[in-house]
Design a binder for these strands. Structure first.
Lengths: 347, 347
DNA sequence: CTGTTAGCGCATTCAT
DNA sequence: ATGAATGCGCTAACAG
């Protein structure tokens, strides 16, 4: 039964035809559900297809049929913080559809997986454009992609060499920390997240700049409510005098909120808590946060890709291409911190 | 400048070669970033490519290169209820990656768009499998897809003729309504959503079965907090004696919650509110709801596709293929309804 | 450095 | 009803 299981290339319609004792045209006919095939023949062909585990080659089919060559962009997202990427992918998807571009989603698990995916994209020319979310790649990769003409844009990561849309996360960390202190905090702690996320590291950096390197901190290994809760518990156990918590993500902050309440402490009163992003439903929960324009992240990526993919006549005139941007962030004061500035937005 | 703008087919490397006065191999070389091309030649070719707005044909390239024919599945989702599909697409994406299957996401806007997408998929053989979320298609479509060998599975919609994973939304509507009544409700109202969603219509049906057709109801045209809030306001204005609200989606329920609070009524006390789905963060908000196993929706779709795409030797033995399933739903009592049964799960 | 040639796997006439 | 031949657009030796 292991006829040639060793590196057997995918069988083609020629193999099927031979095995079924028919011509390739007939194979093609049953493949496409044509009526004009004798039942017996059809069955023979189908049997051969099954026995050989035949899968038609999509590329060959499309080439033969000659359909439109619709552009396709690959979006690589690390799903470690689900709701964030959800909020981003909706406008991305919508924007791409408007430009008649297909979206292939890659839920990147880790660095190694990222490289595998990129290797494949390069080797197979699997797409016409790439959007990198919250991740960078080595310069050589950018060069390689540039050479074969696959444009890349980057969101939430300051990748050099390609258009990138970012926010100033270090400044965001500073703003959050200062807000806590202005609100009367005398002992502020940090709950940070997976180190793979540059945004987290930078928010952490801004925090430390203001609050000092010896400030209490705890790292959640995953971006989940439970991890945030546990981190808060640990922090509160070790440092009972803590009266403010900066959490590098809303989700972690929600967990911290639960931990704090479980100890009968009152968020916004005897302990302040602030998160980042302003993810969906966070407003309902009443968490103070540093808002990121997540919609704009997705929309910008879609617009940029549409622009970059529309080379041609326009580009001859050196039409301005896509520029990197740094979007403003916004302190949103809700009920878990004290609003002392009077100027911060309340919502 | 309008050389042949009329139905000009996409230019090929032959066109470029001719225009640049070189051979096609050279065009291919600059296309692939080969070093071994004279700068002058390269520039000439690039100019020609721009002038003709050339885009390499992906299918042809892949065919020539002969890479693996990685299976690709298209997921069609109506994004009218973002967080729900987000919650579903994470496990879907993860499961597909594990099976080494690419995921192409189609954010379907309306029925017409759905048909356009499916037409294209059929015409271009754009994928090896299709996952339909919360939407059905006509029988002829199923037949057509079956004929050309593209398997289809359906999630959150009882499409006949293909494996489907659903929950009993009518029963869910009954359960929610009964729960409200058991909690002491004497006058219960309904906030429903866009009629395009069968799940909403069915929950509505279950509601009416228990509560009667003349029960007050309001329809939100979009699944947003704001729409839910507005619907609740309308309902409360018209029917001041309402003491319970069933909302066909958590998001609408959150809006209703806000409307109720704005009137200084106390959810779970003088007015009950229940939603559906148990979307992310809804537990934190404390909303009672009917939980759907959204994770399982995505995971099942991924598993099913992996199975269906792995035809071949196994299938010869008539190995049981994918079966339709109806998953259980679960009443989750939190703070916005009164728990009278004592048996309902509290979380 | 550059042009010629031969497939890649399939759909599709055109014969038979 | 079915088989043989042709071409889709591109890459990759192989010559020059």
């Amino acid at each position: 039964m292991y006829e040639s299981a060793f590196m057997a290339p995918n069988p083609t319609i020629y193999d099927i035809a031979k095995r079924a004792g028919v011509g390739i045209a007939t194979v093609s006919r049953v493949l496409n559900g044509s009526e004009r095939v004798a039942d017996a023949t059809r069955e023979a062909v189908q049997r051969a297809m099954q026995e050989l585990d035949f899968r038609p080659n999509r590329a060959a089919r499309r080439l033969a049929v000659g359909g439109v060559n619709r552009p396709r962009v690959a979006a690589l997202m690390p799903f470690f913080s689900a709701s964030f990427y959800y909020a981003v992918s909706a406008p991305l998807s919508a924007g791409l559809i408007a430009a008649d571009i297909d979206l292939v989603l890659y839920n990147i698990q880790d660095r190694e997986h990222k490289n595998r995916v990129l290797d494949r994209i390069v080797a197979e020319r699997a797409c016409e454009g790439i959007v990198l979310f919250s991740m960078g790649v080595r310069d050589e990769r950018i060069a390689e992609l540039g050479r074969i003409g696959i444009p890349v844009v980057c969101v939430d990561y300051p990748q050099i060499g390609v258009p990138a849309l970012t926010v100033d996360n270090i400044e965001a960390g500073r703003i959050a920390t200062r807000h806590l202190i202005k609100g009367g905090a005398r002992h502020v702690g940090l709950i940070t997240g997976p180190t793979v996320a540059l945004a987290f590291r930078q928010r952490e950096e801004g925090f430390i700049e203001i609050s000092g390197a010896k400030s209490p901190q705890e790292r959640a290994e995953t971006v989940t409510i439970e991890a945030g809760r546990q981190a808060a518990i640990n922090l509160l156990d070790q440092f009972p005098t803590l009266d403010a918590l900066m959490c590098v993500s809303d989700i972690l902050a929600v967990g911290a909120l639960q931990a704090v309440r479980a100890r009968n402490r009152i968020p916004g009163d005897d302990i302040q808590i602030i998160g980042f992003d302003d993810q969906p439903l966070i407003d309902v929960i009443g968490l103070s946060t540093i808002r990121q324009p997540m919609d704009e992240f997705g929309a910008w990526a879609a617009r940029s890709m549409a622009t970059l993919l529309k080379r041609g006549k326009e580009q001859i005139n050196n039409t301005p291409t896509v520029e990197s941007q740094v979007l403003p962030i916004e302190l949103v004061v809700r009920s878990t911190t004290r609003d002392t500035s009077g100027s911060a937005k309340k919502r």
